[in-house]
């Protein structure tokens, strides 16, 4: 085939991909309606989504736990003077209220952080629910896996301790010094990257589900 023919075919493939992308939201919505109509999968999505939300808030420091009970004697609730949209870093907002339901847990409440976490949690929960539905109803022998949820990983790297990303503190200073010039400038894209990856995984999961089941 000539170069022109190859180019034409490649551009046509891009055009097909555009059409598929335009159709994807409607397909995803339709499949999710079908899947979440079942109580079992709805419960699974809520359970997984809740766990992801807890992990997200723990990773960014909004949920903190202490084995030693370091908040002993601390007032149950404290208010901040921050505004709703005051940020500490890109996609990380200041908490407005902290609750200490006991000496072993602190809950820093930022409505914006909860909203951002809920979006990630919703995407992961939806992915798992559709994958589980497909595994149950697939007519083909090959069953879809759940590994796509690792697309959520960048969102768990948003936490900050003062001026240092917490995941770099966890790595240790020696390795961190090598990674910081690369990772810190990229940090602002972690959250949108997570949404793009999880969205792409969801579309892919829905497509496979539609191909392997009678889901519409």
């Amino acid at each position: 085939m000539s170069s022109a023919g190859l180019l034409t075919r490649a551009l046509g493939r891009v055009g097909d991909a555009v059409d598929a992308s335009v159709r994807a939201p409607a397909q995803v919505a339709g499949t999710l309606r079908t899947v979440l109509a079942h109580r079992a999968y709805r419960g699974l999505a809520l359970l997984v989504g809740s766990a992801v939300l807890v992990l997200y808030l723990t990773a960014n420091g909004d949920l903190a736990f202490s084995v030693s009970g370091r908040w002993s004697g601390t007032p149950f609730a404290q208010l901040a003077e921050s505004g709703l949209f005051d940020t500490r870093a890109p996609y990380l907002f200041e908490p407005l209220l902290v609750l200490h339901p006991g000496a072993h847990i602190a809950v820093f409440l930022s409505p914006m952080n909860i909203l951002l976490g809920a979006v990630v949690a919703g995407l992961v929960g939806s992915n798992i629910a559709v994958a589980a539905y497909t595994a149950k109803h697939a007519v083909a022998c090959r069953r879809p896996g759940y590994s796509g949820i690792f697309a959520a990983a960048p969102a768990f790297l948003l936490g900050f301790a003062c001026c240092v990303p917490t995941f770099l503190l966890a790595i240790g200073s020696g390795v961190a010094a090598t990674l910081t010039p690369i990772l810190v400038p990229l940090r602002p894209i972690f959250y949108p990257l997570t949404l793009v990856l999880l969205g792409a995984v969801l579309v892919w999961t829905v497509r496979r589900s539609r191909a392997m089941t009678s889901a519409t």
């Binding site: 370091r70 901040a80 602190a106 820093f108 503190l169 020696g174 910081t180």
Partner: peptide, 30 residues
């Protein structure tokens, strides 16, 4: 302070217990 932080925890380590970043030889930034 007007802001909410976990003032019972030092994210870098501990001077009291001589641990973490404060005693490691390495730096986090170049």
């Amino acid at each position: 302070t007007g802001a909410l932080r976990d003032y019972h925890r030092d994210p870098y380590g501990s001077y009291r217990e001589q641990s973490g970043y404060y005693v490691d030889e390495g730096t986090i930034f170049p």
